[in-house]
Amino acid sequence: MIGRMLFEQGRMELRLTLRRGEAVLLTLIVPVSLLLFFGATKLFDIELEFLVPGLLTLSVISSALVALAIATGFERKYMVLKRLGATPLPRWVLFAGKAVATLFLEILQLLIILGAAVLILDYRPSVSWWALTLAVVLGTCAFGGIAFLLSGTLRAEATLAVVNGLFVAFFGLGGVMFAIENLPRPLAAVADILPAAGLSEAFRWATGYSDSVGHGVWVLMFWAVVAPMLAVRLFSWEEK
């Protein structure tokens, strides 16, 4: 029974996300377009080996933070979460379904990015699959936690605005296309305590661009634990 609920819940979540044009644009089209544009033009002299893991970070942010928070925020606004509270569906299965759908979308993103890079741009990484898996899981916990924290406390419209702002901010402060060390000092200090740069570090390590990970990964782990915990405490099922 739980297995079937989880499967159906995950399938519904994924189907709804893929049906939302703006979610498809942001999660599937934007990252690969950036890859092809900067990979082909070599603009700003960004190395392909640096760019690809950065775009994996952007992909995780687009699905685990932006798409997830917006979907959850509007489900809360339209009282879907409340209605599901009046069914035998356990709350944890509701969230597990969202996690399953998000992971599935991320795998799709990963395959598209890596596939395009390898096939079109002649990218030859030395991938550590377990490290890649770990990075995706940590990133999903951290950004998914932030997504639930926002969508469970703010109005849906505010969540929409905040996560779109964060997407742009992390594009600059997440070590996606530029190393955060090259940022002006105050910005670098901010980037240092946010989870995105650590995720980029982890992806660069998992794809063999760097041999080791820095303290950014500890920052990421901190967010991966604290954000979901805060979300569990503060999430409310209905807008006030």
């Binding site: 159906e8 519904m12 339209y78 009282m79 409340k82 209605r83 009046a86 069914t87 035998p88 569906l89």
Partner: peptide
């Protein structure tokens, strides 16, 4: 929850889901 049926005053349905999909999802709950 297995024994009661609930109709909220408004809302409660995934905006982007089709009518049959919503009901098919609910059949998995019971």
């Amino acid at each position: 929850q297995r024994r009661i049926g609930v109709m909220l005053q408004e809302g409660g349905v995934y905006q982007g889901a089709k009518a049959r999909e919503v009901l098919a999802l609910f059949t998995a709950y019971y």
